[in-house]
Design a protein around this nucleic acid. Sequence first.
DNA 1: GCCAACGTTGGC
DNA 2: GCCAACGTTGGC
Length: 150
Amino acid sequence: MNYWVLKSEPTAYSIDDLKRDKRTAWEGVRNYQARNFMKDMAVGDLVLFYHSSTEPVGVAGVAKVASLAHPDESQFNKRDHHFDPKATAEKPIWHCVDVSFVHKFKEPIPLGAIKADPNLRGILLAAQGSRLSVQPLAEKHFKYIVDELA
DNA sequence: GCCAACGTTGGC
DNA sequence: GCCAACGTTGGC
């Protein structure tokens, strides 16, 4: 079992939206590295749901991978902001997994607390210039955040 | 709103 | 295949 971080701007899609929807396709990722990580995901993998561009930025809760990667439908939709003219149904370019809601933390764990914690040294989330919206996460870091910080 | 970091594009 | 220009991300 593997662990991951998924970032989202809460104005676009928040953990409350996921709580309401229970499950959603994680569409709109348009970065090859992030896409490749989603292809590596397995059903049941656990995910930290991270809120970016908000106050405070940080981990808002836990989600779970609910499907293997499948073609991201938004790449085919001309009206969608994430439309990709180079993608075809036969040769889709972008893939996404479904994720389901697990838990929302009472208070989000601020990025600052994650950066300051020596137990989380090396976590990709705290790395300088870490813009990737889908990131792998060490099991020990996942457990520490959920068990000790949440 | 600024800007550093990073990814992508495209001319050569 | 290099690399400058450009676009995007995302913390601050």
